[in-house]
Design a protein around this nucleic acid. Structure first.
Lengths: 260, 260
DNA sequence: GGTTGCAATGCACGATTATACACGATATTT
DNA sequence: AAATATCGTGTATAATCGTGCATTGCAACC
């Protein structure tokens, strides 16, 4: 076997990850005939680029296509529940308000944590709609359209048109990535466009971000950070440099309690 | 046999659980080639996250929470599954067709029984949308609007407008009541109006009726029985006088097999 | 030609994480 | 009730991780 250029090897690994394969560091080391150190360096670099998730023993793909909603939602159920509870408390939701819940597993947790008061809740997420359909204390409005499996809801023109007819009091944006410099960004252009439309129709907007979404970026910009009234982050993000920078930049950052 | 990262193994187990499989600890240990201890640790961790129930010998999936409308759905799950299977077979669904599934627990069973071919499926039911959202072999279109909890989906003006923009090949109507003289009828006026709109936009229409819906009536008429191309009834309705009368009246009545 | 800068590699170290085995306790089966 | 299988905990072991450092190969530059 002839030696493979390092850059080439790294790209090969990246492609496999984006295909949804989970990789073992030792296996890769053997395959490319390099030391595990080199592989670990590659995986760390790919993880820094947001192309995979680093785990003990190798790396896991985090590509939205390969991990449909059902898996992502359960990945960190406890953490997201804590985050959702903090957000629900911080939002100071009042009776009669009109809420919008964007797609996302974190917002699904939030839906379950919504207080039992009279509310109108709109969503473009099938899972969130299903979770709220059984509650009779609130009025539920779903946005129609073609459902994107990778996203778990509708983000097409129909959905944009529907959201533009709404006067939303409080919008909970789903975010794929959040950073101070790049703002909020998403992996899908239509998704990003939908989020922008939802933001425009909302009086206030909040965003729940799990730790792995902080200080990362996705291809399509949604909005700068100051378009968000409050950012809710996990307790474990406390010392995060990005969080401190956001705070000094004047962003309202809410810290969730430790999960049970 | 390449070794998989521990986190990946745990996630794989978690996915299986969320798919409703019950798992044996020893079998998993053999499959992943680790000691039962490691598997038990995984299962304990998953149980701690609330993703499964720990039992002697393995683990059981915790939530068929993916089946809202569960109260009604489980009532006669086996019977409805048989009915749905018969309907799916009788419908002769061909690739590329555009199906519409109306609200109703019977149609939810049908959604689960849809063949794995390329289809476009539209629905106004949240539960059906949730059941189909995970399938990537078909395109899913949900109708937006305000969700009526009693119905489990949208039947308002938005939904009617949306369905009127569709060219439906085959419509599976949900019915509250079916009789030869009164035709198809529903308990809710808006629901009935929506069903009429859906019927108007459909080339063919079928209706699945459990035994208790036969020969009954509801306040609001949807359509006469001859607007339906085929009526699928349960096996136990075989000797039903109403069924015989329908047959002699020229209605195409399909009989389901006995449930397992 | 020699040197410099850069990138990549392999190795050594302490730290972290997962594993397997041992033990008594508990549940299931016969 | 006895026998067997599984469980939970503790502990020692092994694998992997991250970091720092020296070495190598290569291209650019003087």
């Amino acid at each position: 076997m002839s030696k493979v250029p390092p850059k080439d090897r790294r790209e090969t690994i990246g492609v496999r990850l984006s295909e949804g394969c989970s990789l073992s560091a030792t296996a890769l080391a053997e395959e490319f005939d390099v030391s595990p150190d080199a592989i670990r360096r590659d995986l760390r670099a790919l993880a820094a680029e947001g192309r995979c998730r680093r785990v003990y023993g190798g790396a896991l793909p985090l590509s939205p296509a390969s991990t449909p909603m059902r898996v992502r939602g359960q990945e960190a159920a406890g953490r997201k529940a804590a985050l959702a509870a903090a957000a629900a408390a911080a939002a100071r939701i009042r009776p009669g308000e009109f809420l919008f819940l964007d797609n996302g597993s974190t917002n699904l947790a939030l839906a379950r944590a919504l207080p039992a008061i009279e509310l109108t809740v709109a969503t473009n997420s099938i899972a969130i709609a299903a979770a709220l359909a059984e509650r009779d204390d609130l009025q539920l409005h779903v946005l129609g359209g073609v459902v994107r499996p990778a996203i778990g809801g509708c983000v097409d023109a129909d959905a944009v048109a529907a959201v533009q007819r709404m006067n939303i009091d409080l919008c909970f944006l789903g975010a794929c990535a959040v950073s101070l410099d790049e703002g909020v960004s998403a992996f899908d252009p239509e998704d990003a466009a939908f989020k922008r439309a939802a933001l425009r129709c909302s009086r206030r907007a909040m965003l729940l971000a799990t730790a792995e979404k902080l200080a990362t970026r996705a291809p399509y910009r949604v909005a700068p950070l100051d378009a968000i009234d409050a950012l809710v982050v996990e307790h474990e993000s406390a010392g995060h440099a990005e969080v401190n920078a956001m705070r000094t930049a004047g962003i309202d950052v809410v810290m969730a309690d430790l999960p049970l």
